[in-house]
Design a protein around this nucleic acid. Structure first.
Lengths: 204, 204
DNA sequence: GTGTACCGGTACTGAAGCGTATCGGTACAC
DNA sequence: GTGTACCGATACGCTTCAGTACCGGTACAC
C-alpha cells in the first residue's frame, strides 16, 4: 500500500489534478482485473467496469485513453512480490515456503495470466505490464534465494538445474489447470518441490 | 491421415451427404487453427476463415452450427500423438527423445493453447476438445514410457517424482514464452530433461 | 436430359462494444 | 458567494461480427 512512491504516470492522482482518490482508483483496477479473470480479456468491457464500480465510462476514458492502456495500468498497479522476505537460512526450506506462498496466489495469478490469453502477445505494453506485475518480481526473488543457497555452499554455482528452477515452479503452476482442471494449491506445490526441485538440485 | 476411422460426428463427410471432401475440410480446420494462433480465439471470425479458404460463410454454418463447435471440431480433428513410437529401451533416452519431439511441436501447440486463452475455461466442449487434442494423448504416451521404465526396474513404482513428470515437461513448455519471450525448442527441452527430470527420478 | 441439393457470393439483421459528446450536479478553491 | 472543472449519466456514431436468408451456378445421380 505504500508502493505509491514507485508508481509511474499511469496512476491518476500523481499526475493530474483529479478527484479520483487512490482508493477509488484501486477499485477500478480491482474491478477490471476481476472481470478479466472471470470473463477473459476480450470480453471485458469498459461499460462493465464502469457499472460495477458505479462510475461512468467518461470517467475511465478521461484518465486512460484506451482499454489496453487501462488494463496495463491496472496490472502495473497490481505488482507486488508474493514471496518476498522469505529467508530461512536453508535453500530447501526457502523453496518450500516460496511454493506455499505461490500456491496461495496461484488461482488469482494463474487465471489472470490465462485470461489475458493472446492479448499480451499482441500488445507490447500489455506484455511489459504483465511481466512487471507477475513475472519479474517473482523470478528475482527466486534467484535471490538460489544465490543465497549458492553463497552458503548448499549448491554449486554451476549446477545445471539452477537455471531451470523458476521455469519448473512457474511451469507447474500454470499447467496444472490444463492437466487436472484445478489450480495448484500450496500443498501440491510443496510436494512438487520436495519430489522434483530439491532432488534435481541435489538437496535431498 | 488414416485416422478417419476414429473421427466422430464432427467431421462432415462421415455424417452428412456433403460435397466437402475430407481434404477440403482439413483446409477449413487448418485455416481456423492458424487464425487462432495468430489472432487469438476471440478475434477469429467465420468471415475470415471463409475468405482465407475461399468458401462462403454459409458453407461453414451449414456444417457446424456455431463458431465454438467449429473450433472444437477443428481441434479434435487435429489430435495426434507427437511422440508416439518412442521406445529406446532406456527411460532416460525415451524422455530425451520425447523432449526433442515435443520441442518440434512446441511453437504450434503452445501458441494454440495460449491463444485459446480464456475461451476453453468457459466452454466445456472446447475444453474437452482441447484436452483430447493436445493433452491426453501426450500424457498417455509419457505415462507409458514411465511404466516401461518402472517395469524394467529403472525407477521404483512409488518414486515420488513419477507423478510430476508430465507436469514438469508441459509446464516448462508452456511457461517459457512468458519467462523469456521465446518458445521452448528441442535443445532447450532436452537440456531441461537432463538437468532436472532425470536427476529428480534418480536416473543420473 | 432432368432434377435435386449443395456450393459460393452477397446482402441483411441484430447485438455488442469502443470511444465521443453533451449536460446537469456538485465539491472544492479562493 | 462565485467560478472552475471534474464527476456520473445518458445518448449517439461507428464498426465489427455472429448467424440467417436468398439466389444463381453447377456437379452429380439416375
Amino acid at each position: 500500500m505504500t508502493s505509491q512512491a514507485a508508481d509511474g504516470p499511469d496512476t491518476v492522482a500523481a499526475s493530474r489534478r483529479s478527484k479520483i482518490t487512490p482508493e477509488r482508483e484501486r477499485e477500478f483496477f480491482d474491478a477490471v482485473l476481476e472481470q478479466i479473470r472471470t470473463c477473459g480479456y476480450e470480453s471485458v468491457t469498459m461499460e462493465g467496469v464502469a457499472a460495477s464500480t458505479r462510475c461512468s465510462k467518461s470517467t475511465l476514458y478521461r484518465q486512460w485513453k484506451t482499454k489496453p492502456q487501462f488494463v496495463a495500468a491496472a496490472l502495473r498497479a497490481n505488482r507486488r512480490v508474493r514471496f518476498a522476505g522469505i529467508d530461512t537460512g536453508s535453500l530447501a526450506e526457502d523453496l518450500r515456503q516460496a511454493a506455499r506462498a505461490a500456491g496461495d496466489w496461484s488461482g488469482k495469478d494463474t487465471s489472470l495470466l490465462q485470461a489475458l490469453g493472446h492479448a499480451w502477445t499482441a500488445d507490447e505494453e500489455l506484455a511489459q505490464a504483465l511481466r512487471e506485475a507477475l513475472v519479474y518480481p517473482e523470478i528475482a526473488a527466486l534467484q535471490e534465494m538460489l544465490a543465497r543457497g549458492v553463497a552458503r555452499g548448499e549448491v554449486r554455482a554451476d549446477h545445471p538445474a539452477l537455471e531451470y528452477v523458476p521455469a519448473m515452479m512457474f511451469g507447474v503452476l500454470r499447467v496444472r489447470p490444463v492437466l487436472s482442471g484445478q489450480y495448484a494449491d500450496a500443498d501440491y506445490l510443496a510436494r512438487f518441490v520436495d519430489a522434483t526441485v530439491l532432488p534435481a538440485l541435489g538437496l535431498t
